[in-house]
Amino acid sequence: MSDNANSNAYWKANLRLIIISLIIWALVSFGFGILLRPMLSGIAVGGTDLGFWFAQQGSILVFLALIFFYAWRMNKLDAEHGVGEE
């Protein structure tokens, strides 16, 4: 594989990962936390519903998981495509 094709494949894989991550990012905050809250109101969590939990706790926990997942996955991707540092 030429250098150029390789970095194209690397960039495509990166973009795919970013898009999937951002869909999850939007789903837990704007989705579960705000827009879809009425639909989730049947699921009770500690005196209120799941949407409230996502808005005040869950979305933050998912954000954390997303960033670490992305960092871990990208570092692997760097190595696979030989574009990492060192």
């Binding site: 951002l22 960033i67 992305y70």
Partner: peptide, 8 residues
């Protein structure tokens, strides 16, 4: 949530 945008 802004930190997700920053990191990615």
């Amino acid at each position: 949530g802004g930190y997700v945008l920053l990191a990615l």
